[in-house]
Amino acid sequence: MSSKFQDLKDIAVQVRKDIISMTTAAGSGHPGGSLSAVEILTALYFEKMNIDPKKPDWEGRDKFILSKGHAAPVLYSVLARRGFFTPDKLINLRKMGAMLQGHPDMKGTPGVEMSTGSLGQGFSASVGMALASKLDNRKNRIYVLLGDGEINEGIVWEAAMAAAHYKLDNLTAFLDYNGLQIDGPNEEVMNIKPVDEKWRSFGWNVLEIDGHDFEAIFNAINKAEETKEKPTIIIAKTVKGKGVSFMENQVGWHGTAPTEEEMEQALKELGGEL
């Protein structure tokens, strides 16, 4: 029996399979933080954002910036499945001469709005994009995804302050709050709590959701759209490695590619409702 959002759930499964296959074929990459953001990107690209894959540079489009650029596999998969380029390109991730660079390259890949990878910078650029839309009286919306480790960066708070100062209510940030960064849990590496209070005190509208629940994601995006004079951050509680039992909540899967056997097990687990 198909449940609500079944189409999106099916796409999410496909995207997770892509992430596993791509990183295995590449022999490197970041599966953990890609898997945690699957529902957020699927909701944006397949439902919420006003985009045209055939005209990736169309002026009125909504924009998504992957500020946590190391999660490139989830972005590439979603772009391919949405028709920005053919899915056969995915398998060449990180290969010499391939279109899909290790971190997003806006000049080389259709649909990539900003070259990111150095943390915090995509978020800063999203502030510039939101300012530009305001200046041109464009109704498009700017979405940006930050990692929880990423908010250790000073530029994030510079940009957060500026977005509130300029009342960028056309900007919606997501925090992929999976609790883990490269060297371990956030609390051990650099405590970011209380995350919600930090953003609130910087002048942001703060919403907290389960980042794997489509209904919650859409409700939050809609609330963000209704909020005037303030940017919104949706703190999305997520599971790093979501969907693959041996990857879930394991910090080691931040930047390690699966072996062939691990890939087979993961794909089997992700299953075949498709």
Partner: peptide, 8 residues
């Protein structure tokens, strides 16, 4: 960074 976003 903001200048980059404006230019983009």
């Amino acid at each position: 960074g903001t200048a980059a976003g404006l230019a983009a």
